[in-house]
Amino acid sequence: MFERRHLLGLEGVSAAEIAFLLDTAESFKEVSEREIKKVPTLRGRTVVNLFYENSTRTRTSFEIAAKRLSADTINLSASSSSAQKGETLTDTARNLAAMRPDAIIVRHPSAGAPHLLARHVDCPIINGGDGAHEHPTQALLDLLTIRSHKGQIAGLTVAIVGDLLHSRVARSNLFGLRTMGARVRFVGPPTLVPPEFADLGAELVNDLHEGLRDADVIMMLRIQRERMNGRYFSSLDEYSRLYCLSGEAVAKARKDVIILHPGPMNRGVEISSTVADGPYSVIMDQVTNGVAVRMAALYVLVGRRREIESAGEDAVNEPVPLRRAAAAE
């Protein structure tokens, strides 16, 4: 069950809630395999993609997810919105809210921006990535990918490698994976892996090979070139000398290890092409699962909520959304 109004992060979200979202996503995967990739679940609903940061993958994935549910989608990016004219986020949100959208997906460079929106608008807010805070749908698609390959998440060892300090993907995954019973290792240089991460439940390792030992899952984070400015690390070359995921490094992990990357990849910087394109890589599964997870999030927050509100308590127990959606088609 997922009774929350918004999806702002995975911190504090229970194992049952996460499992419900993953199960729902699993049931939506099939839609994308059809010839006609559309169900009428969110017909007549409006979903706004409000993006204050550049994004191709996440925005496209949300847009496809919404369209496969038959919602109308509007994309607003910071350059085309009023932000450039100096309008505050709160005012933009109020104006959007006045047009009665059914959900707003927001990506913003400031941590907490979706929480601010949630205080000012009525409709559900989905966090599409806020600063260095959370990126819950990314973590959900990672969890779904891991679960589909490994059968379950509990008991796995997951090594997350790279710029953990600035990574919202790492945080959401840490919260989600820990809740689902996995061990999480944060692997990177001390400048990018502050010791307080241990308080949040991560094991901290500086050495790549040691960090990958017996890992069931390796999750590589994107290194932002502009951050490797000589402060956190001498140079990109120096970084990749120690942390680029090569075949040799992968050999330290379990034989059936899977490798994830949230994209976009810097080939030859944090991941070698051999590994990225190799047999362990499940990166393309992640992208496919991304659509299913976002369909699930939209369905749970928008479609299902309406069903609950109109049908009363019975609808809450309705486990599989697609049966009804498919029947209506």
Partner: peptide, 12 residues
């Protein structure tokens, strides 16, 4: 303040 809380919230 820099600490576990700032890391959790993703704030600098």
């Amino acid at each position: 303040h820099e600490g576990a809380m700032s890391l959790r919230l993703g704030l600098r």
